[in-house]
């Protein structure tokens, strides 16, 4: 019974504002669509136990990225895995200004709006965010999601000479497309690398066929 009650509690205003944006018609041509490219850094890979440490996101529209239109937040997490420190360089005690998880979610939803979300191995980031939303009794994200890991595989030629892998890491994509890996393992840095990879992938696919959002999502 408690579960039902929980669902009925008032969702905060910011969620309503976010959800309302999905009522209206959204642009369909690739040039007009507002893509939000996102990456999260987390304490680990366990959806229940682990927490988001930072979120980086930027807006990509018509192959342009406005440097000031980005989201870069660091979260104050009580739960913390020391062994992850070396990977992400996020120290619990460092001087970055931190905000609460709820505040971060609020900022994220405002930033996302009804955009199409793009991430590398997106299922992971989306699930982490959804788990965080759940902790505050909020429903899941409603955005359409594209995964550069999956889309990249569509660019590969079908040839018996090419060995295909199940998964391609962001590092592999960066190498393939000559993208600098300097800010690898910071959320916004990874989001930027993902954005460039996404552009190159769509460019490549467009040379082969007509690319629509529907096809990308399929």
């Amino acid at each position: 019974m408690r579960i039902f009650k929980k669902k009925k509690i008032n969702v905060p205003n910011f969620w309503e504002a976010y959800a309302a944006q999905f009522e209206s018609m959204q642009p369909q041509s690739i040039e007009e669509i507002r893509f939000v490219v996102l990456d999260t850094e987390t304490t680990g890979f366990d959806y229940e136990k682990d927490r988001i440490l930072s979120i980086g996101a930027l807006v990509l529209q018509n192959n342009a990225i406005a440097v000031h239109e980005v989201l870069e937040v660091y979260l104050d997490q009580y739960y913390y895995h020391a062994e992850n420190v070396t990977i992400h360089g996020i120290l619990k005690e460092d001087k970055k200004q931190r905000i609460s998880e709820l505040e971060a979610l609020q900022l994220l939803l405002a930033f996302l709006g009804n955009s199409v979300l793009v991430a590398h191995h997106a299922a992971f980031d989306v699930r982490m965010i959804n788990e965080a939303l759940k902790r505050y009794g909020l429903p899941k994200l409603r955005n359409k999601v594209l995964d550069t890991g999956v889309l990249y595989k569509r660019t590969l030629i079908r040839s018996p000479l090419l060995e295909r892998k199940e998964q391609y890491t962001l590092d592999e994509l960066a190498d393939k497309y000559d993208i600098s890996k300097r800010d690898r393992h910071t959320a916004l840095g990874d989001a930027y690398i993902t954005a460039l990879a996404f552009i190159k992938i769509t460019m490549k696919l467009r040379k082969k066929r007509k690319v629509t959002l529907k096809w990308l999502l399929s």
């Binding site: 192959n63 990225i65 460019m203």
Partner: peptide, 11 residues
Amino acid sequence: LSAEIVILYKE
């Protein structure tokens, strides 16, 4: 100045 910049990708 850098924060005002738009990064463009041209094919």
